[in-house]
């Protein structure tokens, strides 16, 4: 298993990638839209009328195409493949529950699910996650994005003490 890249080099690589994405496409990178659209697509398979009448998700189905026919969704497929490739190349690929040292697997799954629900909700409320708001908005010096970013750290630090047994 190889070491991770130097953080500053990884950051420079990520910054260049973000810049070239902007230069070529005029849009930034994102992660949470991919999940939102996947969720809408699969929910639509079982409850089509509910999703189409939803004030938020309904607009995904307004056009001719499925909600998966979208820039950030294709980007998401690529992100999945890229992460997988990196894990393989660096010998980090394995099937496991990634967790802190002192927590049982079942509790970790429950915590991950709870956290996922919160992050999913927040990413729609905030029009993005740490990619769309954090990287894209912040590098464009958007005031809202910086407020969002500092708010993320504030939230994390405010709650960290109460879930310390999960990680320490």
């Amino acid at each position: 298993m190889k070491d991770y890249w130097q953080p500053y080099l990884g950051g420079i690589a990520l910054g260049f990638l973000l810049f070239f994405t902007f230069l070529v496409c005029g849009k930034g990178l994102g992660g949470s839209s991919f999940m939102a659209r996947l969720a809408a697509y699969f929910t639509h398979l079982v409850a089509p009328s509910h999703v189409e009448n939803s004030a938020y998700f309904g607009r995904y189905f307004a056009g001719l195409h499925t909600p998966l026919h979208y820039w950030l969704v294709y980007l998401g497929y690529g992100t999945f493949l890229g992460g997988l490739a990196s894990a393989f190349v660096n010998g980090r690929f394995r099937i496991a529950v990634d967790k802190g040292p002192g927590i049982r697997g079942r509790n970790r799954i429950f915590a991950a699910f709870t956290g996922g629900v919160l992050v999913g909700f927040a990413s729609r409320l905030g029009l993005g996650c740490t990619s769309g708001q954090g990287l894209v908005g912040a590098s464009m010096l958007s005031v809202g994005s910086w407020v969002f970013l500092f708010s993320v750290f504030f939230g994390g630090y405010a709650v960290a003490y109460f879930v310390r047994e999960e990680w320490l």
Binding site: G115, L118, F121, A122, L125, V147, V152, G155, V163, W167
Partner: peptide, 20 residues
Amino acid sequence: LYSYILAGFVLGTGMVIGGY
């Protein structure tokens, strides 16, 4: 602004609980 403050707070909370 206010949505982002709330969203950021909830996202940070979810991040430290969920880890991603």
